[in-house]
Amino acid sequence: MGGPLLWPTGEPWPEYEPKQAPYGPLTTLADVHTLRGIVEQERSRPRTGGEILPTGWQAEVIDRIRNGYAPELLPEGPLPLIPLVQLYARDVPGLPCPEGTDMLQALWSPFDEIEGCSGAVQLRWRLSSDVREVLAEPPEPAYIDMSDLVPAPCVLHPEQVREFPPLHLLTEEQTKRLDAWTNWTKERSPDYEQLDYEGDLSIAPGWKLGGWPAHFTYRYPASSGELQCGECGGPVEALLTVAGSEWDGRSRSWCPVEDVDGHPYHSRTPTVVTVGRGFTLQIYICVGTPSHLPRTIMQ
């Protein structure tokens, strides 16, 4: 996650030219990592005498980074995408690799244009054994707009789980049965710890491959016309869910047992990615031609 990719030296690195004006102050990947390092250092440092904010050179660096760079001083044209995630079929049960491939690489543009169907989000399916010479120094964008879309490098430990459909995909009969079950749990006992279908059973929170698509939280569910490939118009299916946290107060039952007690708040946000105002980005792939540009929807 967010780390180096097994990328052949002779293959062009994907690029994308932002179409919209920057959302906020422009910065660089190096500055993003520098700022996060200062924040992490301050978070772990013992505090005395009510000291709260960084001082001295750290404060100066933070001010410089947050002020950003003037757009007119930066180069124009397409910018290299940054790595999002790399998955191997040997590590991930059910990874839907097209025939002749055994890994998936996803890259995106850290700008406010990742929703829809464009080159801002790209996928690569490849056979890992075909990569003989690995690109040692991948290109980086000269600047970025949204530091919240820069994932902190993480090693993945995939776990296969069972989940149930989101509410918007239930039939009328299933909804009635679910309502009856909910009422039954409420009536069992005032002290009974009630399970919540949406938070505890239906959709696993956090970053996820495959499974049911995420809940629609701030908008109406996508129509059939929206859930289609942007290149061929064919059907799509949920491939990858990008989330800001691995669980929250409502979905705490999904928290790994090793993180239930005694771990700091940021243990549930290892990637440091925030999509929108705390939503998820659902990446859908074309069923007929997985190499087509993916369809992405904020949910």
Rank of each mutant, 00 (worst) to 15 (best):
L170T: 12
E51A: 07
G56R: 01
V236M: 09
D200E: 11
C255M: 14
Y143I: 00
T34L: 13
G276K: 03
M103C: 12
M298Q: 12
L95G: 01
M103I: 11
A238D: 12
Q105S: 15
Q282A: 14
V131Y: 00
G234I: 10
G100M: 06
V85N: 06
L195T: 10
L240H: 10
E172H: 11
M146P: 02
Y88A: 14
V242Q: 04
R162N: 09
P8H: 00
L95V: 00
H292V: 04
G206L: 06
R124D: 09
L79Y: 01
C154N: 10
L227P: 02
W247I: 11
D261V: 14
G276V: 09
Y197G: 09
E172T: 15
R268A: 15
S267L: 08
T289F: 15
E198R: 15
R132N: 02
P235H: 06
E159Y: 06
R124V: 03
Q20T: 05
C255T: 11
E72L: 03
D31K: 05
R36Y: 02
W13G: 01
E193M: 09
E198A: 10
E42F: 12
T280Y: 08
L73N: 02
V85W: 04
C232A: 02
G24P: 10
L127Y: 14
L95H: 02
M1A: 08
A136S: 08
P158D: 02
Y16G: 00
R43C: 06
T171P: 00
L107V: 05
S291Q: 12
P96S: 00
C117P: 12
P110I: 01
Q86E: 08
T34S: 08
T171Q: 01
P158A: 07
S202I: 05
E187S: 11
G225V: 08
C154T: 14
W254N: 04
E237K: 14
R295W: 12
E115G: 11
E115M: 05
A152V: 09
E51F: 08
L209Q: 15
L26G: 02
H263Y: 11
S223K: 07
P75S: 03
V273T: 10
P151L: 03
L6T: 14
T9D: 00
P80L: 02
T34H: 15
L87F: 07
E72R: 07
V92A: 04
P110N: 00
P8C: 03
L239W: 11
A222K: 01
P98R: 05
T289S: 08
I114G: 03
W57N: 13
A89I: 03
G49T: 04
F111A: 04
E42P: 08
L95W: 00
V273L: 05
R132G: 01
H168R: 01
R277Y: 14
P153F: 15
G3K: 12
D91M: 08
P235V: 15
P221R: 02
M146K: 07
S147H: 13
A136Q: 09
V61F: 01
S267Y: 10
I203F: 05
R132E: 02
E226H: 07
A238Q: 12
G50D: 13
D179A: 14
